[in-house]
Amino acid sequence: MLGGLNTRVMLEYLPEIWQGFLSTLWLSAAGFLGAMALGVLACALAIQPLRWLRAPAVAYVDVIRATPLLAQLYFLYFGLPRLGIVLPEMLIGIIALSLNSGAYMAEIIRSGILSIPRGQVEAGMSTGLSYLQRMRLIVLPQALRATVSPVIGQTIVLVKDSSLLSLISVVELTRAGQRIAIDRFMPVEGLVATALGYLVLYYALKSAAGAWSARNALPGRG
């Protein structure tokens, strides 16, 4: 099937594919930053002791994790205009990606924090460290170390999820590949070009994760 790949057409569409690649790259980057901000916020709210602040954070994580990204995307795309909020498709896409991945990031960060044994926190309390000092000096340095790999994993998911934005006519990698399919009736060429773009992003993130864990292994271990 791939033997008869029409590379001439793929090269002809290289500028479009490149534009789509850059677009996916920056949509993902923006989505990642939004997701981290929301994730840290939702996690901070979910682990603090006040119930009325905890409830919205827990509800947010539950609703997002219970529903498909596609439904969330359409909900924003068709729902926001009815509230009188008209935003460019690109921005709606970034909001949807941030909201979606933010819920997963919150859970990843939360489980990193909960993985720190309670005894260490009590040891900190017993020497008079405040809540914020215990978080900053004891819990977070260890929790974040445990969090980097799953965060990169979720980012890989986010990159691929950004392909759904093609459905609300955001031009990105998947949409660019579809152009080859539609203009030239060559869906396989389009999909292969698209897949190569995602593969590049995947390997970039994967090697970043590898480099990070090689440099930041717990001192003296491994």
Partner: peptide, 20 residues
């Protein structure tokens, strides 16, 4: 409580050192 804890040392069965 915080001021008091500065004056009261506590040693745990499981040591609870900070591993990092």
């Amino acid at each position: 409580l915080r001021a008091l804890r500065m004056e009261v040392g506590f040693v745990f069965q499981s040591f609870n050192l900070y591993p990092h």
